[in-house]
Simulated scan of single mutants.
Amino acid sequence: MGRQNPFDGLAEFLAVASRNSVRKAALDLEVTPGAVSQALQKLERRLGTPLFHRTTRRISLTEAGEALLAEVGPAAQAIEASLDQASGSANEPSGTLKLIVERLAVPFVIEPLLPEFSAAWPKVKVDITVSNRHHDFVAAGYDAGIIIGPYIAQDMIAVRLSPHFHWAVFGSPDYFHKHGRPMIPADLAKHNCIRFRRPEKGDIYRWEFLENGQNVSIEPTGPVTVNDGELMQRLAARGQGLIYSSTYHASHRVAAGQLEPVLLDYSPGTDGLYLYFTKAAQAQPKLRVFIDACSELRRSSMD
């Protein structure tokens, strides 16, 4: 036989004690008067004492009922207040927002967004892992990630954060003045290329092109190899060699006249940065406000 629930009948007891009426208590509890009377009778049998004086016209507490109300009433109010507080916390953005972000997103999304976001939602702590490897997204407990579109799993919800961008080769005006411009991907064999070693995999990133309808992949050659995209661009801007990057990542240096794109006609297609998350995670208030902040950042950047 199952253990008796110690709270059985207490809600009915408190309601009747508050309203001095079984009928009014039943209306408050949205049950029938018979259900209230039955619950009270079971409680009284369990306690072995009557809790109410009953007449055809009125109902009032017995001495035992008054003693029980004095003990249970404040506790019930404390429980109700705790539940209200918990409900409020559930709807208020708080806790730790755990993110894994593509390195490309750091200067374009995280740096401009984070100060205002933290100021607006001080109860939300942000834990950011910068990485291009997102394969353990769910297992690692991340709430959301930011990555280049084609790498997002199909069961994720994705929100675009950047304009569509292309992949191209970039060099400084000084480099092109001294060494000329490659006209086709095969020309790269005659140029100094700054090679990029992917930090998470340790391999050399191959430069991808679309030539005569065919995908072409070239492993660049050159005396310098780095594993940091920002360093790669800085070296290229100083004329060290050519790099392979996105028009989005290089946009600031292109606008400043430090880098120029070539081989755009051979770009393999368009990409974009996306915020992604599971359908279940979307319900979290801390993630909802971050999604809103990212969307606002994108709107302002597109104006």
Rank of each mutant, 00 (worst) to 15 (best):
V124I: 14
F117N: 05
E116Y: 02
A105L: 06
S131K: 09
G145A: 13
D143P: 14
D136C: 03
G95A: 01
A144F: 14
P107T: 07
P122R: 02
P107C: 10
L99K: 07
V101E: 01
P112E: 10
G141S: 08
W121P: 05
G145Y: 04
G149W: 01
D136T: 11
D143Q: 11
R103T: 03
H134T: 10
R103V: 00
I100N: 07
R133K: 13
V106C: 08
F137M: 10
V130I: 15
G145N: 07
H135M: 11
A139Y: 05
F117G: 01
L114W: 02
K123V: 06
H134G: 09
N132Y: 06
I100W: 00
D127I: 12
L99W: 02
I146S: 08
L114Y: 04
P122I: 03
I128A: 12
E111Q: 15
F108S: 14
V124W: 10
V138N: 03
V109S: 06
I128C: 13
I100Y: 00
L104E: 02
N132K: 12
V124R: 10
A139I: 12
S94R: 08
N132F: 03
A140F: 12
G145S: 08
L97A: 00
L97V: 01
P122Y: 05
I110N: 02
W121Q: 10
P115V: 05
L114R: 07
T96K: 00
L114N: 11
K123D: 15
E111I: 14
F108H: 08
A119K: 15
S118C: 11
S131E: 09
G149R: 06
P107G: 05
H135P: 00
L114C: 07
E111G: 02
R133C: 09
L97E: 01
L99S: 04
E116S: 14
I100K: 02
V138G: 03
Y142K: 13
V130M: 09
G95C: 05
I110Y: 08
H135R: 14
S94T: 04
V126W: 13
S118T: 10
V106G: 06
L104F: 01
E111H: 08
I100D: 01
K125R: 15
P115C: 07
V109Y: 10
L97Y: 01
R103A: 14
D127Q: 15
I110R: 11
I148K: 06
E116W: 01
I147Y: 09
T96N: 00
P115R: 08
V109K: 04
S118V: 11
